[in-house]
Design a protein around this nucleic acid. Sequence first.
DNA 1: AGCTTATGAATGAACG
DNA 2: CGTTCATTCATAAGCT
Lengths: 174, 174
Amino acid sequence: MSDFCFRGENVGGNRDSATGTKCGRWNPTTEQVKVLTQLFSSGLRTPSTNQIQKISNQLSFYGQIESKNVFYWFQNHKARERQKRRKVDKDVNCSENSISINSFTQTHFTQLYHVSEPKRVIETLQLFPLNSFGESESKNKRIHGSDCGENTMFSYTEEEQMDHPPLDLCLSFM
Amino acid sequence: MSDFCFRGENVGGNRDSATGTKCGRWNPTTEQVKVLTQLFSSGLRTPSTNQIQKISNQLSFYGQIESKNVFYWFQNHKARERQKRRKVDKDVNCSENSISINSFTQTHFTQLYHVSEPKRVIETLQLFPLNSFGESESKNKRIHGSDCGENTMFSYTEEEQMDHPPLDLCLSFM
DNA sequence: AGCTTATGAATGAACG
DNA sequence: CGTTCATTCATAAGCT
């Protein structure tokens, strides 16, 4: 199943612009998404302006990107994780509720806004290696992990094209 | 309309035995679509989280469904109606506003992207909730202290009787 | 059977 | 921040 759904991501050389693809909005490459996701997984949620700048700067190697893209990405990612959590929280009950669902039986709004804040991140996300991390597995899941497996394993190989900067994000962050 | 034309209304689980895949995407039953459409026709455009939950809960009787399905359904339905409307409108609004904002943190983008509001569907059918005040739930007073009144009261009169549960949506909504 | 349409799902961008 | 809009991708259903 083709769950991976990168739309037009271009690993090799992202068409800068002014080509066939309309550059209406930012289309992140898989590398960019991967890095951003890892940063998020590392606990980074609301990067400062400075961090945004640096992230954007680093990611610009993989393709066209602006600071605001990074900004929005984190905003959206954070918001959606929470939103999803809220929506999925209690739909666990299957379709076995016959009738008699009164209005007051809706007492399972578990206000558990406990999103388990990842301890405010360490000031030095030295989480990812300086070099090409092999992306063995870990957090490669799609943002919107659905109920059905959601494998979403990016099946692209990157060994052959690691001529880009070794992602020294952790260095330039602080 | 073929009434009993469940397209996978397997209560046990929505799985496509043909391919073995667990679940591709939500396949609403005719009943579900009918109810959703009616709700939309009644004026409901953007149900709140609670409403989504209740709708989903009710519709789960007819088949597998999740909250996010309801959410997406309304999003898409509304968006597509507007989209079509826009196409018909044939508005050659070549508003070419190149966003030259690099400092998003500075201030909010001053973009006057004001689309023609499609006259907000008739929202006048706020008859009245059939049930009394849902004191138990009512409003979760946010710290924001903003006014409440997010209750999209609507009442759709279901004339035709169904051979399934009495669809007390209007009851459980509020 | 392939193409087209309809629609579920996802997400970047922006608003209040 | 939470919510909403707009655009796009992916896929099931429908049509020729």
